[in-house]
Simulated assay, not measured.
Amino acid sequence: MDAVILFDGFINGYFKWMVIDNIHIDGKKWSAFLVRRRVDIDHGMLTSKEAALPSIGRIPCENGTEKNQTMEQIISNRLMKILDS
């Protein structure tokens, strides 16, 4: 879960630079860079063996019907709603 949060912030930071600050970043270089950084993040977290701050069970759900579902089920259901609309 920590890797997702870190990577989300990482991507949002770059998007802010590109969209709001109008800074050009080559797409091919950026995508390769993001993959390398993601590998670095994952490797660092695995080697440190530090416990994650949030756990999947502590992620807030939008409604009570999701409380007994796994994260995979929640994501799958939400994607199906998007595809059906």
Rank of each mutant, 00 (worst) to 15 (best):
D2W: 01
D2Y: 01
A3N: 08
I5N: 13
I5S: 14
L6R: 03
G9Y: 04
G9I: 04
I11W: 06
I11F: 08
N12A: 01
G13H: 10
Y14A: 06
Y14D: 05
F15W: 11
F15M: 01
M18T: 15
M18A: 10
V19M: 14
V19R: 10
I20H: 04
D21K: 15
D21L: 13
N22F: 06
N22W: 06
I23Y: 05
I23G: 02
I25K: 14
D26W: 13
D26Y: 06
D26H: 00
G27H: 15
G27V: 15
K28M: 11
K28F: 03
K29H: 08
W30D: 05
W30Q: 13
W30N: 14
S31F: 13
A32G: 06
F33D: 04
V35Y: 06
R36K: 10
V39M: 06
V39H: 01
D40M: 08
I41H: 04
D42R: 07
D42I: 11
G44V: 10
G44E: 07
M45Y: 03
L46T: 01
L46W: 04
T47N: 04
T47Q: 10
S48P: 00
S48D: 13
K49G: 02
E50I: 09
E50Y: 01
E50A: 12
A52T: 01
L53K: 10
P54F: 12
S55N: 01
S55V: 09
I56L: 15
I56D: 10
G57H: 04
G57D: 08
R58S: 12
R58I: 06
R58Y: 02
I59F: 11
I59S: 14
P60F: 02
C61Q: 04
C61G: 12
C61M: 14
E62T: 12
N63R: 05
N63I: 08
T65S: 07
E66Q: 14
E66P: 07
K67N: 09
N68F: 15
N68M: 14
Q69M: 02
T70G: 13
T70K: 07
M71H: 08
M71Y: 04
Q73D: 04
I74D: 03
I74A: 10
I74M: 03
I74E: 00
N77F: 04
N77C: 03
N77R: 03
N77E: 05
L79Y: 15
L79D: 11
K81V: 06
K81R: 03
K81M: 04
L83D: 08
D84F: 08
D84W: 07
S85R: 14
S85A: 03
S85E: 01
